[in-house]
Amino acid sequence: MFAYILRRLLMLIPVLFGISVFIFLIMKMIPGDVVSTILGTEATDEARRQLEKQFGLNLPIYQQYLQWMGGVLTGDFGVSLRTGKPILGDIISRFGLTLELTMLSAFISWIIAIPLGIVAALKRNTSTDFGVRIISLLGVSVPNFALATLLLLVLSLAFSYYPPAGYVSLFEDPMKNLQMMILPAFVLGTAMAGAVMRMTRSSILEVLRQDFIRTIRAKGASERIVIFNHALKNAMIPILTIIGMQIGTLLGGTVIIEQIFSLPGLGQMVLTAINQRDYPVVQGAVLFIATVFVLINLLVDILYSYLDPRITYK
């Protein structure tokens, strides 16, 4: 098992390398240069050259990449053009919030989606099934920012409720923190809930068609045991795949949701950096998020092989 995880981690290296090259190249395509962005167009040649040297911009492009990558690998993501502070520290201090938001959303979406998906499968082609289908399609269709806006509108107009302002972390005040996070997490979780619901329904149906289900019934099992001990466990494998894929949607969604709910997370950091043209920050934060996404998918894969004995660790 350990060797398997290690090998999978090694296999990630080329992917992560590709990701970093992609991000690096795309940032190089920015029209206009960073130097003018910082100094303005009227800077002296001397000042420009000085700054170019400071950022290593006078070097050939592959050396620039190596310099950046070398830094990244030793924990130095460079400094923000705006604040001059090291980027990595900022990323790490904000990552906690984003991770919490993502996990909470995922959790909320499962506790909505999996039971509804099971019910839809068991009552397939009834009005209940139809209702679940519409709910899941709505979940996928309603953009998180529209849902958030409408929800805030309704809450303020009908209940005079405003989400608490001033972020507090989970460690400072868990209750207040959860109060702040529950609404954004719910909004973020809906899209994932839609997809997971559908997958749950179709994979439960798929499993119930299999021969071994008949064997279990022939042993005298109750429907409860058939569904929860066997069908659900088998269905979990495809459901996990979709969950892994949906984590990307969640991570992307944090950019929008953190903005709407004024949560100082990684997503908000990216957006602010983009608006301020603080490219080293964008570069570092996007690399970080993509890496997290890849790692989460690896985690899902490992969970997968843990659940399914047919997958060997070879």
Partner: peptide, 16 residues
């Protein structure tokens, strides 16, 4: 009363 089936390959739950 118990029963056995034709397809032994798919008649057992693969995860147990």
């Amino acid at each position: 009363i118990s029963m056995i089936f034709q397809e032994p390959m798919s008649a057992l739950d693969p995860l147990f």
